[in-house]
Design a protein around this nucleic acid. Sequence first.
DNA 1: CCTCGAAAGTTGAGGCTATCAAAGATTACG
DNA 2: CGTAATCTTTGATAGCCTCAACTTTCGAGG
Lengths: 152, 152
Amino acid sequence: MVPKVNPKSAPSEDIATEAWGLLVPLVYPPRFIEIAHKLGVTPPQLGALRLLEQPQTMGRMAEHLRCDPSNVTGIVDALEDRDLAERKPSAGDRRVKVVELTAAGERLRARAVEEMFKPPAWVKDLSPADQRALRDILRRAGAEGGRPTGAG
Amino acid sequence: MVPKVNPKSAPSEDIATEAWGLLVPLVYPPRFIEIAHKLGVTPPQLGALRLLEQPQTMGRMAEHLRCDPSNVTGIVDALEDRDLAERKPSAGDRRVKVVELTAAGERLRARAVEEMFKPPAWVKDLSPADQRALRDILRRAGAEGGRPTGAG
DNA sequence: CCTCGAAAGTTGAGGCTATCAAAGATTACG
DNA sequence: CGTAATCTTTGATAGCCTCAACTTTCGAGG
């Protein structure tokens, strides 16, 4: 009923591949986009908001968002226009600008984080045993790879 | 070391929320974007390519991609310009245009699907027992919700 | 001091994606 | 037939994104 990566056309050699094949259609739906829309910001703005739990340099934001620094300029401009963030000069280095959330920005960020943590139906509908098993597996997965999670 | 939704700032009331909180940083990294870039197409073009396992109407593509129909026009234009797809008239209804992959489009789609099915490191590095458990949980999750998975 | 190279951020050009409103073509129904 | 509904495209507008070029600032050496 819906476009999906057809498992039948996949290699499916090993269990890891099979598990991943099952996970993709469950997580690929653009939740991020939906949340951004719900909160009245664009997805890139939400991505930036998400980074700003603590003040960040423009350059660091670009690294984390995996985009060109010039791109961050426009996104932060938009956040400033809406009084969600503001640029401040860096004490030590006058080339650097530090972006910090305003009170309104903090509030919106809190709502965004809350939304992102709401588990989708397919997780909530799992049996308690499966939920625990899933959580434990993911803990082990997350523990061994301190792997980057930069998300835009 | 990387921007993440800080678990400490989450509600974490129940296990479902906790499991989801662990899953988000493992899956949010824009794999889709990376694959698109690797294959030399834009993400929306990859999304369209992904739908075209079988020929699709413009309108159906818009539904599946969750975007305005007028948007699909441009994306399909781009695919046609690159000889990855072509529009064909619909037999029964001359308003409708059916988009079909060319041979080159099929080849590129095959590569895309292959890439998408490569499990990320965190899945491959799980123990065989965890891999099986994860697969089984996801099978159950996918089975009970015949839920939409439209992805862009 | 003073110049030279590197770094941080911005600007401008060009392209792609997205939405909305409106138009064109075609079909379906009364 | 004629009117409404459907499928797609066009045009206007806005945002994101990358690249190359530029400004300001920092740091190291002469």
